[in-house]
């Protein structure tokens, strides 16, 4: 399966999805004008990737400095997609990175951690 790599832009994050290394990374800011348009190919890739997955260990690194409210909905859908795959036996670790002093990102991470019990969801403070 092809990897999915997108450079960060002024309002969208860097996407680095590597199907061979089982590494999924989202890094940067997310507040595009049209959230659905940006994320639909990303979800298409995810669904294809997860459907082929057996018992390999997957690492998901989420390092998002800022996301708007419609991207917040996307994040929920993204974790739900992963949760469903994990419920089917996949071994998925999510690292939610936040910067020291960013209370809201920490809270978002902790809430996702509570909601997704089939994922190995870690909330990690970034090294400054």
């Amino acid at each position: 399966m092809e990897n999915l790599k997108l450079d960060a832009t002024k309002d969208t994050p860097e996407i680095n999805f590597d199907a061979q290394q089982h590494l999924i990374e989202v890094r940067g800011k997310s507040y595009p004008e049209n959230t659905a348009e940006f994320y639909s190919p990303i979800f298409a890739w995810m669904e294809k990737y997860l459907s082929q997955l057996k018992d390999e260990e997957v690492t998901v690194n989420m390092d998002i400095i800022y996301f708007n409210s419609s991207s917040s909905k996307v994040l929920l859908d993204f974790f739900e997609t992963l949760e469903n795959a994990a419920g089917n036996g996949s071994n998925i670790t999510v690292n939610w990175f936040y910067e020291e002093g960013d209370e809201d990102s920490l809270e978002f991470g902790e809430e996702f951690q509570e909601d997704f019990n089939s994922l190995n969801f870690k909330v990690v403070q970034k090294e400054s």
Binding site: T35, N68, S69, S70, S72, K73, L76, D104, E111
Partner: peptide, 26 residues
């Protein structure tokens, strides 16, 4: 916020319908 995020946007919403709830939270 959690309920609305799970439910998804109303028909006439062009985003997630969460903007004002998020602002009120913060």
């Amino acid at each position: 916020y959690k309920e609305q995020r799970k439910k998804g946007p109303d028909e006439d919403s062009k985003g997630g319908g969460l903007g004002f709830i998020e602002m009120a939270k913060k």
